[in-house]
Each structure stands twice: as C-alpha cells, then as structure tokens.
Design a protein around this nucleic acid. Structure first.
Lengths: 407, 407
DNA sequence: GCTCACTTTGTGATTTTTCACAAAGTGAGC
DNA sequence: GCTCACTTTGTGAAAAATCACAAAGTGAGC
C-alpha cells in the first residue's frame, strides 16, 4: 500500500506529503538546483538547507563540492535513492537524494535530510515513489518554462532585430527590467553555432552567476545574447563588472574550451531604447577581440577597448581611400623596401607606452634594437615628441590598416 | 620738352623707353613687388635684378632688407626719385627708385640701376615722368586684377557653401588646379572680422610664401580661406607643410599680433570634390585650437590634432547624456568632494606620456606630488597599467568634458 | 582651538633606463 | 665572392626616474 497519493496539485503539497511520510525535511529542486518546493519542518535542518531556501537555489559551493566528489553523478546514474554522508565543510548534514528523470533527461532532484536515526528501506522507497510523482509535475512545469523561455527568447531577438522599438515592445521591456538600473548587454560568442545542448549548459552557468541578474537572453547563431545588470551599487558597477567578466570568461573557457567562448559587453544603459545600440557595442567588442586577440585579451567591456571602437570605421574609410596617415605610409614604404619592421615596432612602442624593455620582450628582440629602430623612425618621421593625441591617431591608423573588413 | 610720350601701349614698352632715355636698366613692379615689366639692357646688371627677373618677383630677402633699413618707407613717402646706395649683402647695386602712387595708395615702383656714373637731375626727372605715365597703366591693371580676384573669391565661397559640387563648378575647379597634386585648404582665423585693409596685407604675405602655390583664396568673416598646394615632392609634402606652417604662423603672429591669427590646415586632398570636407577639417582645427590653445599650440594641420578631431562629436554625445566614462566620473567625484585635482593631473600625465617631471613642471608642483596623485588615482580606479587605447579614450573623455559646445 | 586624515614638499638611496661605442650579423647589388 | 650600407646584439658607464621616509602644510569637523 503506497504512502503517497497518485498525484498532488503542486510540488509544495507533494514535498509536504513526503516530509510527513518519512518525518524528515524535504526539498525539491529543478535540474539547475533551483528550489522548487520544500516541506515545512520545524527542527533538524542544516546550514546548506537554510541557504538553499533563503537564496531559492543550492549554494554554488555545495553544488561544486557535490560534483567534484562525484556524489551528484552517482545520484544521477543510480536512479534510486542514494544516502549521502555529511559534508560539514560545505554545511551539509547527512541526507538522502534521488534524481527525477525522464528518459535519461534530468528534470530535478528530491533531497531529504536525515534525522538522528538513519533512513529505513521503506523511507527510501517512499522517496522513490515521490520522485515518480514529481516527474509528472516537473514535466508540466518544464514544458511550461520551456514555452515561456522560448517565447521570451523570440521576443528579445525581435527587439534586437530593429534599431527602433515599437511602443508595445518598449512597454513590455519596461515591465521586464527594473527602472534606473545600469543594464548591460553581453554577447558570449562561440567558435561554432550554439547547439541546444551547448545552450542548455551555457544557460546553467549563466543562471549560477551570483553577481549578475539576467533579464533576458537569447541564442543567435554563434552568439548568446544576455541582457543583465549587476547586483552591485551603481557607484562601483564598473569595477564589479570588470572583475566579474574576467572570472566569468575564465570559467567559460575552462568549461567550454572547445567552443572558445569570448565575451563582449556593452556600456551600461538605462533605457530599453538603447538595447539595439548596446547589442551593437557588445558585438563590436567580440569582433574586435577576434581580430586583435592579443591586444584585447583583457578587454571585455566596450569601455575597455578604448579607441579600438573607432577602428572599424577608420578601416572602412581607409578602404574607401578617404583616409591615410602620411607618417604610417612613409614607415610602411620604408619597411617594404628595407625588410624592416618599423611599423610593428612603433605600434608596440606606443602600446607599451614607450617602455623599451617591454617592447623588446614582446617582440623577442634586444632592447637596444628597439632603441635603434625608434631612432630610425624618428629620423624618418618627426614623431619625436608627439603627445598622446597624435600618438593615438597613428596607433589607430596602424590598427585600422590591420583590420580586415571582409571577414 | 618731355623725353617720353604721353602714353604707351604696355608697361613693357614704357620700361624700354625709360631705359633708353636714361641709359640704365629699368624694372617696374606692382605693390607686391611682383615684376610687371623690365627693360632689355645687355650689360650692367646685378644679382638682385637677375633674381627678380628669373623669379618674377623681388627676392624676399631684398624686400626685407629694404623695409628694415627704412629705405622702402622713404621711397613711398618721398613721391619722387630716391637714390639708394648699394647694399651688397643682398646683391643690390646702387640704384634709383620712385613710387607709383594714386591718392596715397601705392600701386607699384620703378627701379633703375645706376651705371658707372651717378644719376643726373634730368635722368631723375625722366624717372618721375615715367612714374606718372605708369600710374595710368597700373590703375587699369589693378582694376582688372581686382575684378578678377573678387570674382574668384565669390566663386570659392560659392563652392564652399555647399557640400556637393555642381558639374559646372567641378569643371571650373579642375581647370584651376593642376591634377594629382596634394592640395590643402588652410584657414587663417583672426580675432576680429577681416577688414579690406587687413585682407590686403594678408594677401601680400600669402603671395610672398615661396613654399606654397595658392590656387584660390577668399575672405569669410574672420577667416581667410586658402586653397593651396606645396611646391615640394609628394613624398615629403607633410614634412614640408608642417615646417612651413610653423614658420608661417610665426610670421603672421609677428606681423598681425593684434589680430591673433591662427592657422588650421586640412588634410591633403586630390579631388576638388573634397574642398568642402577640407574646409570643415581646417575649421575644426581652428575651433579646437581656440578651445585648447595650450594643448594644440603646435598643431596646425588636421593630422597633428590626432584624436582631438573626435572631441566635438564626443562632447555632443556627452551633452546628450549618451556617453560618460565611469573612470573619469569617479575621479571627478573625488575631486569635487576632496578639493583635489586628480583629473587634471591624470590628463597631463597622459598628455606627457607618463613623464612625471614634465607634468610637475607644467602644473608647477613637486614631482613627488604628481607621483602621489598618480598612486591615489590608481587606488581609486584600476587604470594602473592600461595601455594606449584605453588611456586615449580616457583622455578623450576628459577633453570632451572640457569642450564647450555653445561657443 | 584641536584633532585627524589627507596632501604636499624635501632628501638621499636605489633601481631603471638611456647612451655611446664596439662588434658581429645580414643581404642586395656589383 | 666582395663590398657597403644597414641592422642587430653586447657591454659598461652615465643619466634619470622611482622609491621610502620624514617633515611640514592644509582644512573639515568636533
């Protein structure tokens, strides 16, 4: 005789029923370890469970620990309740867990904390029974979520397809995002088109980022577009963003090394009217980083690429023969007739702010060689003591020349 | 009984007649010392005369010498022939000169070289008579020239009034300028609207510039617009231009200190279609130099202002609240709450390429103070080791903030 | 008026960069 | 193959920038 009913109207009532049947606290999570339901149980709870309920998801540290120790994998593979010894380092008391699966696809998990006495066979059977019932409910929820998220994805793509917003779209966007928050649009660009499997994994990683709040996201070919904002104060939004971007990109490159993911982040914006422009900025960053991986290896946000943002336009003008820089032209001419590398040397000399040692190290040559070349350049052109504005323009001209418009 | 006829058909025949009457070489010049006519005389000539005839104008060195020594002024004031002792330093033998005037307005000069024996009273009288006859001829020429030049001036203003050329205008422009020559459009901007008197003097100085060839020029309010090209090779056009611009501006500022003349030179262009754009560039240079006299004190050509060319556009965007730079914003905030000058310090630190000594000298503070402030800035923002592209963008943001759109 | 945190200036040791000069390497043209 | 002009590398002396540290100055807030 089963201890549970055939079905329950919600996961919450199910969690409550299981909890009462085995007299232990129950939490039900989706496959992203987001909290779906939990039983009310006055006593015997542990820090991990409290943190999970407060944060509406299992703390990242706990998830990592469970993955690294192989426990989670075991739970997924087993298909029946697994008893897990306490892991006090991450605040986890002893518990039992069972996966909720549908044809090898993980839908979620049911967790139960151990009371003072260990789980009996019957109690574990009840858990298993609960998982079967939860499956039906989760499938309904998953389908619904999938429909919603697919709809939102189409909506975002629709918004980004045109530079100007329709009034209806603007209204809906303003409902989605809190006002007066510094939003950003981030592009995660991959080497190949993003498959549904990859998308799923990316969404998961994205959902587990604690510094940011995602408003909307969508897949567009090789890019995952994310509209988000930082949870920090406005005053250090930029600092936090840049620190996060570095960590996040590192994480992505560790987890998805075969996709060579690269970030591009727009400047901050406050009006949904700016979404289109922000997407352009973010994409400009990824494009430029693709073309100048070395120079822009640590530039992820539009602010960080500095005057590189002007390179495509300048390259276009050079392509149209509207623009040339006499100084650069002369050096290029000298280079080609003497097999030298004056332009390259000058470029890095400017980039490294006149630091001969670093230029030499970068180009793998003797510092005196750099010094010699700089003197040579000074003889050929009179950029001996030009100041920042002119130097940057020359640097820009060199970079724009390297930028290829075709690809 | 007069030795000369009442009138001659041309200045050449007049010069010849005077030359024969007093048996000495004669040259007739306009008020700009451009050669109008000269007598053929086989012997007794001097280097100055040869140079004048070859170059179709009196060498600048000779003119300067005659002005500085006060001789030319004496000739103009006298209204009758003046005998001038030899000035061998500038290749001038002894000669007599008389001004050709009409109501105090100088129209030109007649010069006569001395032979071995000095000028007799009668010969000087013949010179005077020649000046009277020349006056009529010169007045006709001057009137004609004035009509032509006024017409050309109107034409240039007409061309510059619209971004696109009419076919008729393009055709006429192409007739005026030699093809495949690197043209420039230079603006000479004065503190006050240019009066006809000032215009006259400016035209004179312009006409005596040996490095450039003027195609057209026109007055537009406070600006004298000059379409010209360098007489040098294309390969070092820029070098020659920049050197010329420095000399020329110095000259203008010496001669017209009350008008505070300032140069603005476009990039080079080859097609007359670019005239409008070139005028914009040149004007942008003068505008920026007016707003940043110190920073752009030695930048006269559009190439030289470097990324300053982007300042107006950026200032506009900042004005529209489309653009801010978080780093700069934070420093500004610190400055205003701590009465410090971090932004200013950073600005010049960037400008002087991180040279602490020069920054200190410029700001009249101790080098260690600069060092201290830079460390402070590094604490507040993380621009510790940002490279040229980002540095320039920050510099641009600072400068654009200083740029006022209104005036 | 006093305190305290912050800023500026001064001094000399320490480190880094630049410079002059020599020597060796490179390659195009005869 | 040789020459010659140009380029690169190496060495140590000379010059310059940076640094730590002390002392003096400044001003807002109590």
């Amino acid at each position: 005789m089963p201890f549970l009913l055939k079905s329950y109207e919600s996961l919450d009532t199910l969690a409550e029923a299981i909890g009462q049947a085995i007299r232990a606290p129950i939490t039900i999570e989706n496959r992203h370890h987001q909290l779906l339901a939990y039983s009310t149980h006055p006593d015997s709870t542990d820090p991990a469970r409290i943190a999970t309920i407060i944060g509406r998801r299992v703390p990242e540290a706990v998830i990592e620990d469970l993955w690294e120790s192989g426990i989670l994998q075991e739970v997924i593979d087993q298909d029946e309740p697994v008893v897990i010894p306490a892991r006090l380092a991450v605040g986890l008391g002893e518990r039992a867990a069972i996966v909720i699966k549908q044809h090898d696809e993980v839908l979620g998990y049911i967790w139960s904390l151990a009371r003072t006495n260990p789980f009996s066979t019957q109690e574990l059977a009840i858990l298993q029974e609960g998982a079967t019932i939860a499956k039906k409910l989760l499938m309904t929820i998953a389908m619904h979520e999938r429909r919603i998220s697919a709809e939102l994805e189409r909506f975002l793509l629709d918004v980004l397809a045109s530079p100007t917003l329709t009034d209806a779209n603007r209204e809906r966007l303003n409902e989605l995002a809190p006002i007066a928050v510094a939003s950003r649009l981030t592009v995660i660009e991959c080497a190949q088109p993003i498959t549904p499997q990859l998308a799923e994994r990316l969404h998961y990683v994205l959902a587990t980022q604690e510094s940011i709040e995602v408003v909307l996201h969508a897949i567009d070919g090789q890019q995952l577009l994310v509209w988000h904002y930082m949870k920090s104060e406005l005053s250090d939004e930029e600092t936090v963003l840049i620190a996060w971007a570095e960590r996040f990109e590192q994480l992505l490159q560790d987890k998805f090394s075969e996709s060579e993911p690269r970030l591009g982040i727009s400047r901050r914006f406050f009006e949904s009217d700016m979404l289109y422009a922000a997407a352009e900025e973010a994409r400009r960053v990824t494009t430029l980083r693709r073309k100048f991986p070395l120079e822009l290896s640590t530039s992820r946000a539009f602010e960080q690429i500095g005057i590189y943002q002007l390179v495509p336009e300048l390259a276009r003008r050079i392509g149209l023969r509207l623009e040339t820089h006499p100084t650069v032209e002369r050096l290029q001419h000298y280079d080609s007739s003497h097999q030298t590398e004056l332009v390259k040397t000058l470029e890095w000399y400017f980039y490294f702010d006149g630091n001969v040692k670093r230029v030499a190290a970068h180009l793998h040559i003797h510092p005196n060689t750099v010094l010699y070349r700089i003197r040579r350049i000074e003889e050929l052109t009179n950029i001996t003591q030009v100041s920042l504005p002119e130097r940057s323009m020359i640097y820009l001209a060199i970079k724009a020349g390297q930028y290829r418009l075709e690809d």
